[in-house]
Amino acid sequence: MEVLHKRHELEELVKNNLLHFQLWSNVQVQNEYIPWKGMELRLLTGKPSQKLSNDDENLGTDGTLMTEYILPINMSQYKTEFITIQCLDMIFEKLCPEYVKRLVLAIVSDDGTTVFYFAYKGIHKPKRN
């Protein structure tokens, strides 16, 4: 049986970034994971401090913002880590509740910055500028 590589350090970095730089709340690393290219892929969940996009009607039943699902990814000047469509499909299917329409990709670059992008399930109307 293959030993899967854990990504604690990466997950911890993203968690700290969301909690203490972007000032999100309730940021947790999920327990469930899927195996992918020798790694354990885990999502983080958390609540943003404000609406992430004007197009969002992303309000929960109690009127607060919905929980976001975050996938941490490594990026390097001289190496690549692949996240494929197949991998994203698996994540939507196995790690998110049915209603979740998008992931937040937290791309941790080796220059010390973390950038965030949305990845939607299926086709999504382009964002208004």
Binding site: L10, N16, K79, E81, D110, D111
Partner: peptide, 28 residues
């Protein structure tokens, strides 16, 4: 597999920033 090269001492962090703007604060 994806090395992170870190300077942790507060004084040295500021020194590298002040003298040539090396590095990035991970939470800044």
């Amino acid at each position: 597999s994806f090395p992170h090269i870190l300077v942790e001492d507060q004084g040295q962090m500021i020194y590298l920033w002040d003298n040539g703007f090396f590095g990035t604060g991970q939470l800044s």
